[in-house]
Design a protein around this nucleic acid. Structure first.
Lengths: 180, 180
DNA sequence: CGTTTACGTCAGCCATATTGACTTATTTTC
DNA sequence: GAAAATAAGTCAATATGGCTGACGTAAACG
């Protein structure tokens, strides 16, 4: 049933020439990269999606557990800033994670209005498993690509990020505290 | 600061020892790549999101217009296979695009049950604009990365795709220009 | 013929996001 | 010390984009 006849797709009549400015693109049209990134990302998140679905969680839970695990003690406001979602959206997801014992919250020391976020051992284990799945995909990819590919990919991915947010992201992935 | 002593506080993956950076990963932990891919993809789709929002469309519309533009005359079943969604999900999005004059459907020549999909001039223009936005992001990135990066990125992205689907994806992205 | 295929549609459900308004603590400021 | 600002949580309504199941219709197939 699933064998859809993709090869039945007809020729594109629209090309009056292969358009995509053939200077300096190494013979690789951007539209190819656009589509490859789409499919690559879809499979990349698919790894985690399967695992999460078995726990009744979704991608939103993944992102929360991941960042809290990486940055123990971050504030709710910090998390909102990283995820760029509203606190109402975060609310349900966070409550579910707390209720099921993956995340815990503690009042801040210096400012007791703050609810600092930590993963429990259970949350840390979940995060570790998800990282492991995706790490395997990267490892396989770089194994196919040959030496230097990992470094190249890192540069490429960083360059794809908005210049304005790049510094913040680099700080974040370096594991720096998201605080003050 | 964040160094509260909470007994259940998990050790940060960074401080706990960078587990995987001793063997063959070029000093780049996979967790960095995971996060970079997350942020890169978010900004990448953000380009199009803004543009689409002004038309009252979302990502679902983008994907449909994009693939139909790239593969004029594709069948609904082909599109469903590419997007891996159900026909019910596609239904609303496709109807909106047809109603607003971005996509049109024609009965197949040899098989009149088929509704072959085409973009209108309006749809083609929208697709072109969205590709252009994302092309600019790639161009900027590769400009920063130096020569060879485009080819490396292409290899990397292809390698990140599930091996089972890779052949199909390669056919798809080459599709409209090389087929038949 | 009868069956299968391609597509569409109705109805309902779920996950994730949004905005706006409001409450509760707590800290900061005047 | 009262007022204002801040951190977080919550209620309610809404949108988007997925899903399943059931059913219908037209056309092709055998």
């Amino acid at each position: 049933m699933a064998d859809v006849n993709v090869s039945a797709l007809p020729v594109s009549p629209k090309t009056g020439g292969k358009s995509d400015d053939s200077q300096g693109n190494e013979g690789i049209p951007a539209v190819e990269l656009i589509e490859l990134l789409f499919f690559a990302y879809r499979d990349f998140v698919g790894d985690a999606d399967e695992h999460l679905a078995q726990l009744g969680f979704g991608r939103a839970h993944h992102r929360v557990v991941h960042f809290v695990s990486r940055h123990p003690g971050m504030r709710v406001a910090d998390l909102l800033a990283v995820l760029k979602i509203t606190k109402q959206s975060l609310g349900r997801v966070l409550r579910e994670l707390v209720d099921h014992g993956y995340v815990l919250q503690r009042a801040g020391d210096s400012d007791r209005r703050e609810r600092l976020l930590y993963v429990t051992a259970k949350g840390e284990e979940l995060s570790r498993q998800l990282v492991s799945l995706q790490t395997r995909r990267f490892a396989r990819a770089f194994n196919e690509c040959g030496p230097g590919a990992r470094l190249e990919a890192r540069k490429f991915l960083a360059s794809m990020i908005d210049p304005e947010s790049r510094e913040e992201v680099e700080r974040l992935i370096a594991g720096a505290d998201t605080k003050k």
